[in-house]
């Protein structure tokens, strides 16, 4: 790891949603601040700054991570995926996103991008969770608008009809 100095802005390079990006960050700059204010994406939402709410969840090298508990310099050289990566290049929603729309799985939408990233990683491990398993996983996120009903239905519908589990059957 390179020597990091306080008060010095170090170059930080990421493969963000498949594209190389570069910016600068002091060692103490949070990844959430870096993505929002240095790179300029709009999906990494900060809801609690202490890792409870999950709104800032991104994937770092495929691992579900809280961007508010990660320093930008820790992610230097990593592949970071955010909700911007889910739709295709024309903006066509993914099947998971469409399921959220169909089942009214979001209201204000502030927690949604982080939740989508957790679900994306989770379903890779477990393509067809039961409702209890899914609710257990989703309990790592706080949503104050929806009561979670729509998003649970959305994911179960997606797993039944579109996800990897559905295709496997």
């Amino acid at each position: 790891m390179p020597q990091l100095n306080r008060d010095v802005r170090h170059p930080v390079s990421l493969t963000l949603n498949g594209k190389k990006v570069q910016g600068h960050a002091e060692p103490r700059m949070l990844l959430s601040d870096f993505l929002t204010h240095e790179i300029g994406i709009t999906s990494c939402h900060v809801g609690c700054e202490h890792g409870v709410c999950g709104a800032c969840t991104v994937l770092i090298d495929g691992n579900v991570s809280r961007a508010c508990l990660t320093f930008a310099v820790q992610a230097d050289g990593a592949a970071v995926d955010t909700a911007e990566s889910l739709a295709d290049d024309e903006g066509e929603l993914s099947a998971l996103q469409q399921a959220f729309k169909k089942h009214h799985g979001l209201q204000c939408g502030y927690c949604t991008p982080g939740i989508l990233m957790s679900i994306t990683a989770y379903l890779k491990e477990k393509p067809k969770p039961t409702e209890d398993e899914l609710r257990d996983m989703l309990s790592g996120h706080l949503c104050r608008c929806t009561g979670y009903v729509g998003m649970v239905r959305a994911v179960l519908d997606y797993c039944e009809n579109s996800g990897a589990g559905a295709k496997a059957e």
Partner: peptide
């Protein structure tokens, strides 16, 4: 279905 959702779901809001 909501017209708001595409923007919110893609993290573009």
């Amino acid at each position: 279905e909501r017209v708001e959702d595409a923007t919110l779901l893609t993290g573009k809001a």
